[in-house]
Each structure stands twice: as structure tokens, then as C-alpha cells.
Amino acid sequence: MSTTDVKTKKLTMIEGVREAMRLMLKENDDILILGEDVGKNGGVFRATEGLYEEFGEDRVIDTPLAESGIIGNSIGLAVNGFRPIVEIQFLGFIYPAFNQLMTHATRLRQRSMGRYTVPLVVRAPYGVGVRAPEIHSDSVEGLFTHMPGIKVVVPSNAYDAKGLLISSLEDPDPVLFLEPLRCYRSSRTEVPDEKYYIDIGKSSVLKTGEDISVFTWGAMVQDTLKAVKELEKTRNISCEVIDLRTLYPLDKNTISSSVQKTGRAAIVHEAPATGGVSNDVISLINDTSFLYLRAPIQRVTGFDTPVPVYSLEQEYLPSAAKIQAAIERAVDF
């Protein structure tokens, strides 16, 4: 089929998420959606809008308000033939289910030597910058990349969201699918109507460049692109910007070959610095590309504080000025 035959629609990211779920619910009867307010209400962000009407209450299930209960039951369903998609209303509310993920979902396969497996996708809106009440904006992907047995993905646009969610729903292992709140409706991208995959573990080079590789994900992708373009106007610096898209397992080849080309690297994320995924990117570069480096690797991150109340969230978020300063530090080193 030539590319001109591919029918596309311009979708927001949340529409991309919904399209993937609709397509997969149609294709595979084993797929269920479970969560709080995902049924009649269509989800508090409308991610599941229309799916309850289309697929019925046996497949798009309003559950009791109990995160551990939702994920625990989904483990039982997954082991016994279903492929649940769990919506956790906000990532900041996933903590009651931490035990179910850490001690069961991620290790039943190993504990049972492959007898019991948990093909489970947990979707969770997350992130700073939408003036939400406390706890709603937590940005804590590092808690989950530290869990052996789960994969962690973060799309930043509709195209990636649809393809990544489809891949997640065909993955034999648990996947945490993070949905950056600021990206939900901030832009539209062309999305094919048909089924396609974005592979888990593959990053996306958004902009090629020669002097520095800037790695980021989620809502910081657009901020980073904007900051970089401004900087390139004022300084003669050519930046490569890479959206990691998968935080575990990281895209080793793309990250290392980019750094080996540019000789410099910066990582931008909104989660707290200590224990953040940036540290794994630095380790990867250290292990693969140390002798190519021409400057210390820069990090631009949130602080080692809780994600604050919304009146302080702009102070917390990595700003364009900070991203630019980090790039300049590396280039001017």
C-alpha cells in the first residue's frame, strides 16, 4: 500500500489513546477496560468516551474506588485469559497499588517459571503543569523503571500514543503507559486510521543536530523543542532532540549513537533529580560512549521536593532558560 492510501485523521493525544483502545477492543475480545469512572462517564479526562456505549459494561467496567483492588483483580483476570487495560485516574493515586505491581504483576512470571503471566497495561495520566490539586501532578516514573518485570512507556503525541498503546496491548508483560497531562489536548498530529505499532524500546529522533544530544520525554518534549529552537537562533549551536518514548528498556542504540556523533548530552525531565531516569541515561552513555564525550552530561530536572501545589508548579518545572543554560554549559565547556 502506498502512503497516499493511508487514511489519517488529525487527533489530539487523548484521542490517539482512545483510538488505540477502540481498535483493540474491536479486534480482541479478551481486552477489558477497568477503572474508576471509565464507563458511563468516559473517564475523568474522557479517554474512554463512547467505549462503554460501544462495547458494553462487561468490557468497559466501572470498578469500586480502590486502586489496589483494581490492579489486584486485573492480575487475576490477566492470569486467567484476559488482557486488562487499567486506568488509574492519576499516577499520584497509584501508590495503594504499588504492592500489587511490585510483588505480583511484575514477578508472577518469574515466580511461576512462566506458568502464570500478566499481560496487563496500566494507563496513568501524570505530570506537572495543568494547575491540578495537590498529588494529582506527581511525576514519578523512576519508581517504576526500578521495578524488574515491567516496561514503562511515555508517548508525547497522538501518533506515538496510538502506536505505543497497541504495542503495549500485544506485549506479553505488564506495561505502565504514562500519559502526560499537558500533552492530552495541546496539539494534533496526523494519525492513521489503521493499526500500526510503535515498538517498545524505540525512541524517536525529533530533530537532528551536530553539537549536543538532548534527551527528554512526555510533556517536556515540546518545552525542550521550543527552548532549543530559541537557542539555535541566538547561538550557533545545532541540537539533536530525542523523545525517548520508552523509559524501560531504554533505546541503547539511538542514545549511544547520537552521543557518539555529537559528543555532548543533556537530559530534561520534570521528575525529581535523585533516582530519576536521567541517571540511567547517564549510565548508559558512560558505559557506551565515555570516550566520545567532550563535556560533562547535563541534567535539567525537577527538584528533590514533592511536586508542589499548583501556584508553585512553574517554579518547579524545568524552564526554557534552564534547558538553554544546560546546553550552553555543555557546548562552552
Partner: peptide, 22 residues
């Protein structure tokens, strides 16, 4: 037979989930 539940009470939810699947 599931692997023995170690964290107390956490296996009850798998029992409801697996039965729900049946």
C-alpha cells in the same frame, strides 16, 4: 494453584480476579 501469597492478604484480589474471569 498460585505461588504462595507472601505479602499478607494481597492474594485475595487475585482470587476474585481469576474467579471473575471464570
Amino acid at each position: 494453584i498460585f505461588p504462595p501469597g507472601i505479602p499478607i492478604a494481597s492474594q485475595l484480589l487475585h482470587a476474585t480476579g481469576a474467579a471473575w474471569a471464570e
